[in-house]
Design a protein around this nucleic acid. Sequence first.
DNA 1: CATATGATGTGACCAGTGGCAACATCAATA
DNA 2: TATTGATGTTGCCACTGGTCACATCATATG
Lengths: 216, 216
Amino acid sequence: MSASKKLERKPYHHGDLRRALIEAAIEQLHTSAPTEVSLRGVAESVGVSHTAAYRHFRDKSELMAAVSETGFLQLRDRLAEAKRGHNLFRRQFERMSRAYIAFALEQRTTYRLMFGPRFIEQLTRAGVAESAHAAFAELLTAVMKAQGGGEVRGESPFLISQTAWALLHGLALFYLDGELGPEVDSAIATSACKFLWEGIQGQRSTVDSAPSAKKR
Amino acid sequence: MSASKKLERKPYHHGDLRRALIEAAIEQLHTSAPTEVSLRGVAESVGVSHTAAYRHFRDKSELMAAVSETGFLQLRDRLAEAKRGHNLFRRQFERMSRAYIAFALEQRTTYRLMFGPRFIEQLTRAGVAESAHAAFAELLTAVMKAQGGGEVRGESPFLISQTAWALLHGLALFYLDGELGPEVDSAIATSACKFLWEGIQGQRSTVDSAPSAKKR
DNA sequence: CATATGATGTGACCAGTGGCAACATCAATA
DNA sequence: TATTGATGTTGCCACTGGTCACATCATATG
């Protein structure tokens, strides 16, 4: 076989095992519950001994934390993408909500992992905390900007954003748990966002959809 | 030792092992994550061989489902208790919200278990589904009654209740994950409920909170 | 009262898991 | 060229959930 080149002959050293393990773990999460994903299985699917993983992760939880981190980064991108090109918060909120739930549905198990029981531990790892906050910041900045324009009431943007996030998270779990249908646009998500929107919008809504009798 | 009586001499047959196992599991959940609770550990803490559990539960997950069921029943009682003696939905909602989050905080790990990754599987077991729906019904009936009095807008009580539940669930997880302080009354819960309340209240609010400044 | 029978608990054992330690392999530098 | 540190491997350990054959007992039946 070719001797000079680098591939084919399964080199003793993998090259980028860390990344490969993370991707393999994500792959397994598509078909297995977080609990059922075994470090051994992941290593095997990469064609490597299970202990090799310990050269790149202190233990299994650190590998899973790395998976979470990539999840949060992806979620952040989705949210950023959702609001891009729209200036009205009402519109941004609607699109971000859909994007959020769509992400949770597509990455079901990863999403569960991200917000699962190890969430606290994970947040102690720098990377996870940062990426999680980055995702949250997408929502927060949108709220703050909308407050500047008077579109959203002027109370603490943190409280408002957290409320919205909590609602989205709760909704996402409902979808994941199969209590709701698989269509992101189903009644509940739409209604829920409408209810919250009506609770947080500012007095002088610049463009209040329709002049329908609103205002309290 | 006394031969005629029933206690002391650790009888070969436990008497009510099923219940004892459930309680022991709940006990362990107070100090261990759901994942870390082992069937063997639970059995040992009851002073029984780990295989004895299989006489009462098909497998570990069935034991955990039983734990969930008792959790939902307890949650239902808490919610029922919270609204008892109050007629104004606004007041009921406020109290139920606090009760909900308080329950999640007190039974941290059990709560995680209840809504954890196995939620779907659990719901296929009759007992769990029933108790879960019973808890939800407490909220639902309150909403429906309030709609009758015009206190809550007349849209689908299901959608409204689910929205509220989703919000509460999301909030509860925030508390559990330590993103928020441990005080149930902290700003976020109060604000979140206020925002939602303003989004769902009916047109002719009978008593729109005394104009008192309240706490803001 | 004696005995048979089914419910309940036990011990031995299995495969699978996460993790550790000593060793093997290799790439890069001195 | 030799050494060294990073990376991957093999062998092992304790532990877990689960199955099996067997032990113990409560109770119904003669």
